[in-house]
Simulated assay, not measured.
Amino acid sequence: MKTIKLISVTLLIVCMSSFNYNVANEGYKIGDTVDDFSLKNINGERVSLADYKDAKGYIVIFTCNTCPYAVAYEDRIIQLNTMYADKGYPVIAIMPNNPQVKPGDSFVAMQERAQKKGFGFPYLIDEGQTVYPKFGATKTPHVFVLQKEKNTPVVKYIGAIDDNYKDANAVKTKYVEDAVNALLKGKAVTNKETKAIGCTIR
């Protein structure tokens, strides 16, 4: 009888721990307001959302150097910034991986990659991995389109950049572009959430 009780209590603790983990790691949902952050950019300066006084919103992308999916999307990420930064929706890229686990995502490697690709947007390192869990990011790349409402960023789209990571020329639906274009026109985003395709954040 004692053994059965012990097993029951153990299972209860495990279930409650799992529940708390899931709740804590759900992250932002559509319509949620986003807490600002301050992360180090590749130039050594710290960047926060509040630095963008004139922004209408943001295209926050969790990405990295080492994931093949992220690398495949680099040119498209650059294009997103080129298309929308001047319209008020700059790209803010955040590298969420632990460099001790993924040495190819070290701060120096980030600097080298950004220089090689000519990134025209911030490439921030999530030191201590405190920001990506708040967002609920799980993959690289994972996109969060935010819009300022009463000067507070609100989540309007979460998910993939488009529907074909393998070939930019074969893309049929450009999720992020569609979302930002809708917001620029003062319309609601039709496709608010898609499945992020990429490598698991480590």
Rank of each mutant, 00 (worst) to 15 (best):
K2L: 14
S8D: 08
V9A: 15
I13D: 11
M16W: 12
N25F: 09
N25K: 11
T33Q: 06
T33S: 15
F37D: 03
F37V: 07
S38G: 13
K40G: 08
I42C: 05
G44Y: 08
R46I: 09
R46F: 12
L49D: 08
Y52P: 04
A55I: 07
G57F: 06
Y58K: 06
Y58V: 12
T63R: 03
C64P: 07
N65S: 04
C67N: 01
C67E: 04
A72L: 11
Y73N: 02
R76V: 10
Q79L: 13
Y84M: 10
G88N: 10
Y89W: 05
P90K: 06
N98M: 06
V101Q: 02
K102H: 00
A114F: 01
Q115I: 11
K116I: 12
Y123Q: 01
D126C: 00
E127H: 09
G128Y: 03
P133H: 09
F135E: 04
G136E: 06
T140L: 05
V143C: 09
V145I: 10
L146K: 04
K148D: 13
E149R: 12
P153I: 03
P153W: 07
V154G: 12
V154H: 01
Y157T: 03
N164A: 15
Y175N: 01
V176T: 00
N181D: 15
A182S: 12
G186H: 02
V189D: 03
V189H: 06
N191R: 08
K192S: 12
K195F: 14
